[in-house]
């Protein structure tokens, strides 16, 4: 359970997030949508207890800093220093080695996590030689190896092909049965089947609720400042044309 009340985050002298209030049940799948600079990553980092905030956040009934070991974080792939020569096993075990040390249990958990994302045969492979999609799956395995109750993913589909995207979504779909997943993305369309709630964020909360209720042309125009056509069919809706993310 995640509860956010009147959350405001001030960052380097400007307001990054303003007066957010929402709550999320456990387990569930939340997608955070918003343009560049909307505060999506800031919100994830606030959940992780890395950024000071005003207001109230309760994650499984506790302050963010107190539940860090219950949260798994998968950062954006382009923030990783991919020049470091690491084997896949090293990448997956890295957080466990820091917290637990080199033990049999760590190796076992890392292997199981890699198996869970279909990457076990790459155990000894050079991480740098993997494709972008394979690297994303290794990062997902690394996040899962810690066995977190909630998983926070920051744009896991950036620079990945369709096959990878669908493979990761399939894994996430399976995981949502017992874990809360919070995913930042620019394209909600591939996630319509597994998404429980959507948060439309542009520093302020533009909308929060079920996808079918929140993804409206009016909300999307408020979110992106331009008209975004929506296709609706029965209880599903799709945005037409993705939000293309260009990093400055």
């Amino acid at each position: 359970m995640i509860e956010v009340r009147n959350l405001t985050v001030k960052y380097d002298g400007h307001v990054a997030l303003e007066n957010l209030t929402f709550s999320l049940e456990h387990p569930s799948f939340l997608v955070i949508l918003g343009p560049n600079g909307a505060g999506k990553t800031t919100l994830l980092k606030t959940f992780l207890g890395l950024i000071p905030y005003e207001g109230e956040i309760r994650i499984f009934g506790k302050e963010p800093r107190e539940v860090r070991n219950l949260l798994g974080y998968m950062p954006q792939r382009d923030r990783i220093n991919r020049s470091v020569p690491l084997r896949v096993k090293d990448v997956v075990m890295m957080p466990l080695l820091v917290t637990i040390g080199l033990k049999k249990e760590v190796v076992k958990r890392a292997r199981e996590a890699l198996r869970g994302v279909g990457m076990e045969k790459y155990w000894n492979a050079d991480f740098r030689s993997l494709s972008g999609g394979q690297q994303q799956r290794v990062f997902l395995a690394r996040t899962l190896a810690r066995n977190p109750k909630a998983i926070l993913l920051d744009e896991p589909f950036s620079a990945t092909d369709v096959a990878t995207k669908m493979a990761v979504i399939k894994i996430l779909h399976r995981l949502k049965r017992e874990r809360t997943i919070i995913l930042v993305t620019h394209d909600v369309n591939p996630l319509v089947e597994c998404t429980d709630k959507v948060l439309l964020l542009n520093r302020k909360m533009i909308g929060f609720g079920r996808l079918i209720d929140v993804i409206t042309e009016e909300n999307m125009e408020r979110l992106y400042g331009t008209r975004v056509p929506i296709i609706r069919r029965e209880n599903v809706c799709y945005t037409v044309g993705g939000d293309i993310h260009v990093r400055p």
């Binding site: 992780l48 890395l50 860090r68 950062p75 923030r79 890295m94 957080p95 080695l97 820091v98």
Partner: peptide, 19 residues
Amino acid sequence: RRKMLFSIFDPEGAEAMGV
């Protein structure tokens, strides 16, 4: 060495882990 390597490879991931 492990914490230094984590910080070099993935500073954001390390920070999220309290490193």
